[in-house]
Nucleic acid binder design. Structure first.
Length: 884
RNA sequence: AGGCGCGUAGCUCAGUGGGAGAGCGCUUCCUUGACACGGAAGAGGUCAGGGGUUCGAUACCCCUCGUGCCUACCA
């Protein structure tokens, strides 16, 4: 017997341990069964589970469990990402607390520290994934910095280098002065800010007068090496080639002409700082200007900044403005909206910074990745994301992959101290070809996303030709949020196509972002984060998972509300209680046969089995199309309302009755439908379903629900006849209940009912009169085609019947007339609507025949209904008069 | 600046070229032997606004307003 209440905590752990012990999550490297594989988007090893992960994990686990039960050789490959900058930041913070820093420690010692830290805390998020019920193959867990993956990284680097797709050069990159490293374009987050546009006067070097330039970054004037104007600009044409003198530092720079300059912006004259602005960088190249780097790596002014040397960049801005103002060189400042780039790891404002970096020449890779989606080799779901994907891929720029940090894959490049030779190698070289052993490895590490781009094949053993790789590549689907579509998905596409010659996955399912109940993005600083662990603590993992699935409609963000989790906990409770009901009614050894004998079935049995069949089909179909919310909704509706509210109530008389044969039939049908329902629900709520299933009486084919065959429609019995008949019976019940409800009659009061039927309805009702008696609390039900309304009776009108409930003393004739008049005006409205259509010539001419027929039938129905209502009203009015 | 979404019941959201659905909330009644984390019956919507296509639009197209996001080198 099940406990009175479901207590998730112990039960979750118990079953998770059981599944692990039984090795159910273990994939086979070689198998006759078809493969199904998902690689997890590896969470940052520094991370802890947030609600986005929870959604991600839940959806993946639903797919994996569904496919596992459906007979696939499923592999869900888990792991974590070394998250270079983020992890390094965390450990550096620790060091700071201990009063030291990585430079004091030195590179080797520091990396040791990070590994120590990883050993201590790196398992946190993995354990949290387990607590969510994730059925990953933990024997295959990987880490982006482990040995195998590092080998893959080197292999890829070397091959791209050899093909000329990786190069090194001095370019303007995004620099985070706090993290002290280059960032790729993607790692810069732009934010709109209200800034100022400063108008600065540059005097001519050799004559009176000045030219005014407008800038948002006055401090960079220290690195100016030209002033540019548009060659067509009449105001400035005569000045081209003249020299202006920069204030304070007194450097003379030329006025140049460049098409790029927009005459309508600012003064039409722009200061050119080639080492500190991407456009100016290009202009500097075009005009062979000097590149002066006025900054240091930590965002202070360099030697080149003359009197401002050593000042912080923002401090310097203030000082420059003050000084220029005092000198009368600052003309004015106006408000100016602009967008400023911030480091995605630490929110520091990034600098365009001139430095030597490694890049991937990306266009050739992107072309293949575009083609793969265009040709349908990869399907992005929902397809709206394809636009973003194409847009980004088509405008892609070379990828800066070197980072000036220590935690990561060190770039496999060595320089000979003696002859200057550059050696790019898979293995660490011992000696240069010049004979020197003085080799120095490049100091930089690779962008973390470089290694995660290889994830779908590096985790399966590449560059070795392993069985795993043969069996599971390409993987089946990638499930992730759109926020890493470019960072990760796009790059996996490029690398997968390049090195495996095949797409890394067949489907990409992009899910929504979870926001708070007000629609705000969750963030630690706003303090509006929902902690998934608190949710599982409060409501149980299953309720939380089911909520996430129910929320996961395609193409819309999720505004997360705790109330909804509560609602689905109630659903769990419902399931739990119906399980209790079943176990209370089945004695040990009774109804243990789960097979259904068709000839013993009642209408209710046939109906629920037919519905079960439809539900099996719909759930499978929904999952096939990644419509998680539909699948969850269908199951919720079926189990709660059809199974519990209708079916269980309908079979109670049989269960409590004396007839052992019909009791046995009802019980085995109930048990069967419930067992199949548990199986259907299992991918959504694995723990509670397993717990109940294990305690269910009856013989089972497997020792765990998670390896039971996922139900297909043939576990029910499609039966249109039963559904049609049932709908008639339900109408009768609902009709009587409505009268009870609307007239506020006590549920304990047994009502009489006369049901005037149309042609074939009478037989159906008579055959199933027990259901009506039970569910409508009715007695003495009379049916017949020619029954006449009786005095003091309330009326309900249904498609194939009229129901009269005699009320005698409880009857209020005026209230009833009011009820019927309300009904009447509703029907009249309906008639008007259909009539209008049918009288429209164009409608008759152009609408499909089926639609016309449908409307004609409706019209006839309405007219008949109207007639009934009118007759009843007339009778009531008449009786009312005669009573007076 | 470009691109992509969204606007449907009080709230959160599904949905469809043929009279609008769910959950929560609300109202009324009910401790009927699984469940008050429950049961039954109800109320509640010009499907943002305007135009167009169509026999027919909440759905398809255009515009407006509101709102969110992504991408972008305009100093």
């Amino acid at each position: 017997m099940l406990e009175k209440r479901y207590e998730p905590k112990d039960i979750e752990k118990k079953w998770y341990d059981f599944w692990i012990e039984k090795n159910y999550f273990r994939a086979e490297a070689k198998s006759d069964r078809p493969p199904y594989c998902i690689v997890i988007p590896p969470p940052n090893v520094t991370g802890s589970l947030h609600i986005g992960h929870a959604l991600d994990i839940t959806l993946q686990d639903i797919m994996i469990r569904w496919k596992r039960m459906s007979g696939f050789n499923t592999l869900w490959l888990p792991g974590t990402d070394h998250a270079g900058i983020a992890t390094q930041n965390v450990v550096e913070k620790e060091l700071r607390k201990q009063g030291t820093d990585r430079h004091t420690l030195g590179r080797e010692k520091f990396i040791e520290k990070v590994w120590e830290w990883k050993k201590l805390y790196g398992g946190t998020i993995i354990n949290q994934l387990k607590s969510m019920g994730a059925s990953c193959d933990w024997s295959r867990e990987r880490f982006t910095l482990d040995e195998g993956l590092s080998r893959a990284v080197r292999e890829v680097f070397v091959r791209l280098y050899e093909e000329g797709l990786i190069y090194r050069g001095e370019y303007l990159i995004n620099w985070c002065p706090r993290c002290h490293t280059a960032l790729s374009d993607l790692e810069v987050e732009h934010e709109d800010v209200q800034g100022k546009l400063y108008y600065m006067k540059y005097n001519f070097a050799d004559r009176e007068g000045h030219i005014t330039v407008a800038t948002t970054r006055p401090e960079t004037y220290l690195g100016d090496t030209a002033v540019a104007v548009n060659p067509e600009d009449e105001r400035y044409k005569h000045l081209i080639g003249k020299m202006v003198r920069l204030p304070i530092i007194n450097r003379d720079i030329p006025v140049i002409a460049d098409e790029f300059v927009d005459s309508s912006f600012g003064t039409g004259a722009v200061k050119v700082t080639p080492a500190h602005d991407p456009n100016d960088f290009e202009m500097g190249k075009r005009h062979d200007l000097q590149f002066i780097n006025i900054l240091t790596g930590d965002g202070r002014m360099s030697e080149e900044a003359g009197p401002y040397k050593g000042q912080d960049r923002f401090e310097c801005r203030k000082n420059v403005l003050n000084d220029l103002n005092e000198m009368g060189q600052l003309e004015k400042a106006t408000d100016h909206a602009m967008s400023v780039g911030h480091c995605y790891r630490c929110r520091t404002i990034v600098e365009p910074y001139l430095s030597m970096q490694w890049f991937v020449k990306i266009k050739p890779l992107a072309e293949e990745a575009i083609r793969a989606v265009k040709d349908g080799g990869v399907k992005i779901i929902p397809s709206t994301w394809e636009n973003s994907y194409f847009d980004w891929m088509e405008n892609i720029k070379d990828w800066c992959i070197s980072r000036q940090i220590w935690w990561g894959h060190r770039i496999p490049v060595w320089y000979c101290e003696k002859c200057g030779e550059t050696i790019v190698s898979r293995e660490t070289p011992a000696v240069c070809k010049c004979g020197s052993v003085e080799l120095r490895q490049d100091e930089d590490v690779l962008d973390t996303w470089f290694s995660s781009a290889l994830w779908p094949f590096s985790t399966l053993g590449w560059p070795y030709d392993t069985d795993d790789l043969k069996t599971f590549y390409p993987t089946s689907v990638l499930i992730t949020g759109f926020d890493i579509l470019f960072f990760w998905v796009a790059r996996m596409m490029m690398m997968g196509l390049k090195f495996m010659k095949e797409e890394p996955f067949r489907h990409v399912y992009i899910h929504a972002l979870i926001r708070d109940a007000e629609g705000q993005k969750m963030s630690k600083s706003k303090g509006n984060v929902v902690d998934p662990l608190k949710m599982t603590e409060a409501f149980g993992t299953d309720a939380f998972r089911f909520t996430l699935a129910a929320y996961a409609a395609q193409g819309r963000d999720i505004k997360f509300s705790e109330q909804r989790v509560e609602g689905y906990r109630h659903f769990l409770n419902k399931i739990w209680n119906v399980a209790r009901f079943i176990s209370m009614n089945i004695k040990e050894g009774e109804a243990t046969d789960l097979t259904i004998k068709v000839r013993d079935l009642s209408l209710a049995d046939r109906w629920i089995l037919s519905r079960l069949s439809a539900v099996c089909s719909e759930v499978n179909q929904s999952l096939e199309e990644y419509r998680f919310n539909d699948a969850a909704g269908i199951l919720y509706q079926f189990v709660w309302h059809e199974l519990c509210d209708w079916y269980v109530e309908m079979i109670k008389p049989e269960l409590y009755g004396e007839n052992t044969e019909s009791k046995r039939a009802a019980l085995s049908a109930l048990l069967h439908v419930f067992e199949v329902s548990l199986a259907l629900l299992h991918p959504f709520m694995p723990f509670v379903t397993e717990e109940i299933w294990q305690q269910l009486p009856g013989k089972k084919d497997t020792e765990s629900l998670c390896v039971r065959k996922y139900p297909s429609p043939d576990e029910g019995i499609g039966d249109k006849d039963a559904e049609a008949k049932m709908s008639v019976v339900m109408d009768a019940i609902i009709g009587i209940r409505s009268i009870r409800g609307e007239l506020n009659l006590s549920p304990s009061l047994e009502l009489e009912a006369l049901i005037r039927t149309s042609d074939n309805t009478e037989e159906i009702l008579n055959d199933n009169i027990a259901y009506i008696q039970k569910l409508a609390r009715a007695k003495g039900i009379k049916t017949g085609k020619d029954l006449q309304p009786v005095k003091n009776a309330a009326t309900a009108i249904k498609p194939s019947m009229e129901i009269f409930v005699p009320l005698e003393g409880l009857f209020d004739i005026n209230a009833e007339i009011g009820r019927l008049n309300k009904e009447k005006s509703k029907i009249e409205g309906d008639i008007m609507f259909v009539q209008k259509k049918l009288q429209n010539e164009d409608f008759i001419k152009k609408a499909p025949k089926a639609v016309i027929d449908e409307n004609k039938a409706k019209y006839a129905d309405y007219m008949e209904k109207l007639q009934s209502v009118q007759n009843n009203i007339d009778k009531l009015v008449q009786w009312g008069k005669s009573d007076d």
